[in-house]
Design a protein around this nucleic acid. Structure first.
Lengths: 234, 234
DNA sequence: TTAAGTATTATTGTCGACAATTATTCGGAA
DNA sequence: TTCCGAATAATTGTCGACAATAATACTTAA
């Protein structure tokens, strides 16, 4: 199942609904990464006029899932390794700062809530160890809670409203579930500890390491994957 | 005069042109911060249909200059002090990281170019000391060069394509030209030094301090301004 | 056969009108 | 007078058609 991000407001207009559908389709690769978007075709497929389709396309462009060129058309962004690494660099900067702000601005209730989640998360992990999926959901939940805890609208909008759609897209398309389950759990624990200690500096540092570790893990996986492909060809 | 940001591609379609005009108007306060946007009225003013106006509005929304609510309409974002501080927090995170990446990724030519700019900048400052305006332009030029030097599309797009429109808006509307002319120059020098030393860690740290100092300077100005207003009322 | 230029087709951009939703005004009852 | 509700007006969302631009196919000349 798809995890809705918490900043997304409920779709009211039909353009909103089509936007959400296309968002799913792009994130999960049903509309392939890098492919050109034909307005007439998609308008017909979703049974709407081109105007409302274009409205939906504008929102997709806003969260960096498609790119438009004037008088030429739209393409789905393509998932390159460079793009993935750039995304993680950006996450490191933004989520690191969000974590620092969370340590300063989170309410006590929010912190308790997060600790509760972590506990539940730990139990789930013990039960379904190896089953990556819930871990992934838990990971996203955790990150969302920290970001929202920053109480900084600018940060929240940039990360949840824009970056995380791309994050989910890369996770889907590169098949990167279940990264470092147990280590991630420990790292989450440390971060929550720093936040409840109101230690912004440490919180930022730990979050940055957490994301950097995730990035390096991905780099390794990709390198390993390339190696396997190389061997298969022989 | 208005300083175009370097990532903005030349306007080709009429929606683009209207977008640019409205962008100016909003940044400079001709369309007041916080005011509601009437689609029929603006379409008439710019002599275009509502469709192309809405296209322009979508781009304004993309760079966070207006906000839309379904079935209700658009408003120009309002410039609050909290918003300004949140913006600077975000800048600190993103530009700090951009600066680190610039230290790693900038070409030698780019570095030379930036050093040349700094030198010219210093002479201008000596000549027109006290005249804030050129200083401001120089400041933006410097920041743009560092950001572009990161060679990270994600960072470049987020900062130049989105944040900096808001930065310019706040600068205009709060009348914050000429902040800390001589100190800023020294800070810029140090940053360039760190970049040419390829010391990413130091470069990030210095850029973060530079922006944080700017933020604190603004906080002081606002506090002082409030104090003056309080005295005037007596 | 290849290359360039032109004609054709298809796609995107723009327009004005209608439908659906929200805001406002007006009237009546407490 | 004040508050609530219905009718009206205004605004936003959606639609289909036309205009302008880009991509494709075809023709012709070297």
């Amino acid at each position: 199942m798809y995890l809705a991000n918490p900043t997304q407001q409920t779709a009211v207009t039909t353009a909103d609904k089509v936007f959400e559908q296309m968002q799913h389709a792009i994130v999960e690769g049903d509309i392939p990464s890098g492919s050109k978007i034909s307005e007439p075709e998609l308008a017909k497929r979703y049974q709407i006029s081109r105007s409302t389709l274009r409205e939906a396309l504008n929102r997709l462009e806003k969260c960096h899932l498609i790119e438009r060129k004037a008088n030429v058309g739209s393409r789905v962004v393509d998932c390159s390794i460079e793009g993935l690494l750039e995304l993680y660099i950006t996450r490191e900067a933004l989520e690191g700062m969000a974590c620092r702000q969370a340590a300063l601005n989170m309410s006590d209730e929010e912190i308790v809530d997060m600790q509760t989640m972590l506990k539940a998360h730990g139990q789930t992990q013990e039960l379904k160890d190896g089953i990556a999926y819930y871990q992934e959901e838990g990971d996203l939940d955790f990150h969302y809670k920290v970001i929202l805890g920053s109480h900084n609208k600018q940060l929240i909008d940039l990360i949840c409203g824009q970056l995380y759609h791309l994050v989910r897209m890369y996770r889907c398309q590169f098949g990167m579930n279940s990264p470092r389950a147990s280590r991630a759990f420990n790292e989450h624990s440390q971060i929550i500890q720093a936040i409840s200690d109101r230690d912004g500096e440490l919180a930022e540092m730990l979050m940055r390491r957490h994301i950097a570790a995730s990035r390096k893990n991905i780099e390794n996986k990709i390198a390993q994957q390339n190696l396997t492909e190389l061997n298969d060809r022989k």
